[in-house]
């Protein structure tokens, strides 16, 4: 096994009294594509959002390329706490891309400006250079003909493809997809999934939280079933989706297939 590019150790997350993640550990190798499935409220989005610190983990460590993030402090009560400096978090987030369920495009910027924004503001790239990169990413998701449109003029599927291009422009080492098709009309899901599959073919490292089990089956190198804040079952798509061993996984899949035809 190579050294993992992302390593999560004993991750916990609580919102007030609610203990959402109860000790999650995961090593991600370069080129792996991990699909995370589970019922709503199981904590799968929270887990993904902890990886790039959209949510601050309550406990546990995250390491990127072998470097543990944050610094451990002892509190007066004798507990250990991990503190994160804003600068370190910004550097991590620039290396870990994220695509949101609600797209979250910047409505006051054109398609092109949206994709250039990270390069110009965060990476301090020259405008011409940023334009070049943005253009090639937008071409990849098939939107090079809508450069000057504003997000409000695009369909949901188009907006999500712009969001994918925006994340890609930063050349992230890992891309996190947080239910990227869940707020799309059914007929628009396909175009977004096709864009994601292009990235898979490029050998990119990706984590995908999804309800599209069919896509997870074809896309992922590893599937994780998350329930009650822990990994209940981990394996190849074949193992988890076709021959699940855990009772909970079986029930979840049965509920999912209830109205299949």
């Amino acid at each position: 096994m190579n050294k993992p590019i992302l390593s999560v150790t004993d991750l916990h997350k609580s919102f007030g009294p609610q203990h959402v993640l109860k000790g999650i550990s995961l090593d991600v190798q370069a080129g792996e594509r991990i699909a995370i499935i589970g019922g709503s409220g199981s904590g799968k989005s929270t887990f993904l959002r902890c990886i790039n610190f959209m949510e601050m983990p309550s406990q546990g460590r995250i390491a990127l390329d072998g470097h543990s993030l944050g610094s451990v402090k002892q509190t007066r009560a004798g507990e250990t706490r991990v503190n994160y400096a804003e600068r370190e978090l910004c550097q991590v987030r620039a290396r870990v891309g994220m695509v949101f369920q609600q797209f979250n495009l910047f409505p006051h910027m054109t398609v092109l400006e949206n994709v250039m924004e990270g390069l110009v503001t965060v990476k301090r790239a020259a405008k011409t250079e940023a334009r070049e990169v943005a253009l090639s990413q937008l071409t990849k998701v098939g939107l090079s003909n809508r450069l000057d449109a504003y997000p409000s003029q695009l369909s949901g599927g188009q907006q999500q493809r712009v969001a994918i291009a925006r994340a890609l422009a930063m050349e992230p080492e890992i891309i996190l997809f947080d239910e990227p098709t869940s707020s799309l009309d059914p007929e628009l899901v396909g175009e977004v999934l096709r864009s994601i599959r292009v990235l898979a073919d490029e050998g990119r490292t990706m984590l995908l939280v999804t309800h599209e089990l069919g896509f997870a089956y074809h896309f992922a190198t590893k599937v994780i079933f998350l329930a009650d804040g822990v990994f209940h079952e981990v394996g190849t798509p074949e193992e988890v989706l076709k021959e699940p061993k855990q009772q909970k996984t079986k029930e979840f899949l049965r509920r999912f297939n209830e109205f299949a035809f």
Binding site: C90, R93, F100, Q102, E117
Partner: peptide, 24 residues
């Protein structure tokens, strides 16, 4: 989500405020 999209790109809080939140 707007602020989050900014910080997910690696913006500092101040950058997200200036580039994303304030113009809107």
């Amino acid at each position: 989500g707007q602020r989050e999209a900014g910080s997910a790109l690696g913006m500092t809080k101040a950058q997200a405020m200036r580039r994303v939140v304030l113009p809107q």
